[in-house]
């Protein structure tokens, strides 16, 4: 079996749920309390992804990067060597969807052909949504990235999101 290791960065505005998505995917846990991430937290998760006629053992190094403008400068130093990106927005805050092209540009400076996926997070908070699926679709189409409705709280869409990215990484 082939073993491949890839660095994946999660990018998005603060409080969109990047840390929670990783915690759900890696530890299958969720914490309601919001704790801002500063710097970077690296987690590891191994998944098995089919490729041609074999299964590939893919070690995903998940880089949880601080969101927000204050970290725009330092973020670039964390992006070196990145193989794929997860762009995260919060369906309850329209401005976080508007920010995704900015993060895509940051990744494009490293590698213009990076596999990207969009996580439209907090899908469970239906009554607070400010963003419609059509708006997410529009941005996803513009950034040429598939999107997934996710809920780190309930787990909806999280596994699918990372598995799809895994396929893109080894494809």
């Amino acid at each position: 079996m082939t073993t491949i290791s890839k660095k994946v960065c999660l990018l998005g505005d603060f409080a969109v749920g990047k840390t929670s998505l990783i915690r759900r995917f890696v530890y299958n846990r969720f914490e309601d309390q919001y704790l801002s991430t500063i710097g970077v937290k690296v987690s590891r998760k191994t998944v098995f992804v089919p490729r041609s006629e074999e299964m590939v053992e893919l070690i995903i190094m998940l880089w949880d990067l601080a969101g927000g403008q204050e970290f725009d400068n330092v973020r670039t130093s964390y992006l070196r060597g990145v193989s794929g990106g997860v762009l995260v927005c919060d369906l309850c805050r329209a401005s976080t969807l508007d920010s995704l092209p900015k993060y895509t540009n940051e990744l494009a400076h490293i590698n213009a052909k990076l596999p990207l996926v969009i996580a439209a997070n907090k899908a469970d908070l239906l009554d607070q949504h400010q963003v419609g699926i059509d708006q997410v679709e529009k941005v996803a189409s513009m950034l040429n990235a598939p999107y997934y409705l996710t809920s780190a709280k309930q787990g909806e869409g999280v596994e699918t999101l990372f598995r799809q990215l895994g396929k893109l990484l080894i494809g």
Partner: peptide, 10 residues
């Protein structure tokens, strides 16, 4: 330093 995985080029 598992954080360095992916930074092999550096």
């Amino acid at each position: 330093a598992p954080e360095i995985i992916g930074c092999e080029a550096e």
